[in-house]
Amino acid sequence: MTRCLLLLTACFAAQAHDIITTSITFSRDIARIVNNHCASCHHPGGMAFSLMTYADARPWAVAIKEEILRRRMPPWGAIKGFGEFRNDQALTPEEMERIVSWTDGGVPEGEPKDMPEPPKSLEPETFRHGKGELSATGEFALTRAFVLDGLWPEKVPEKGSFQITAQLPDGTIQPLLWLQDYKAQFGHPFLFQTPVNLPARTVIRGIPPGAKIALLPKK
């Protein structure tokens, strides 16, 4: 018993009151996720508090876990696997699992030498509306062929949840975008990994009453 206690004391000494039960660390694992998904807003002088260092992130660990599990952060909005987007900001299942393991495992810092380089740019990407966009409401039928590069919610009821699909003339139904518990922060373009060819007479469905979605053309 005494030996066990000594061993436990030795194990915990460096981490004050945290019981470390994971080998996932901030330096080696979590900092990379922060750089890729959070840093554009969560940096010193950014739109939100910084998460760039262990000291910054440590007090927020439990909140980070809860926010990412609920998909409230990052404020991306689209459910994975319903359309595929080249500007996707959602965490992968593996990244979510790492954050859960880190938080539940005592929030270890790790070695400073394992910290990744900070991102080259911390500026959030900005978008502008362009020519050739179609503004879709309700059930929207295309009168001509359209190469769809993305969707941009212009007006959507708060907390709305809906799936936008394209029904092609051959009967195929293509998933385009699934938004859940809509917030104003989701009002950014969702740009497809590969533009979608929509023939004339394609019907866009799933836009809820009171909502307006811009269909972005391929340039």
Binding site: T22, S23, I24, E94, E97, S101, P108
Partner: peptide
């Protein structure tokens, strides 16, 4: 003990499916 020991080592073998 395992987790603690790994912090000080460079060569780490990781499970691709269970990264912890």
């Amino acid at each position: 003990i395992f987790a603690r020991k790994l912090w000080s080592q460079d060569q780490v073998w990781v499970c691709p499916m269970d990264p912890d």
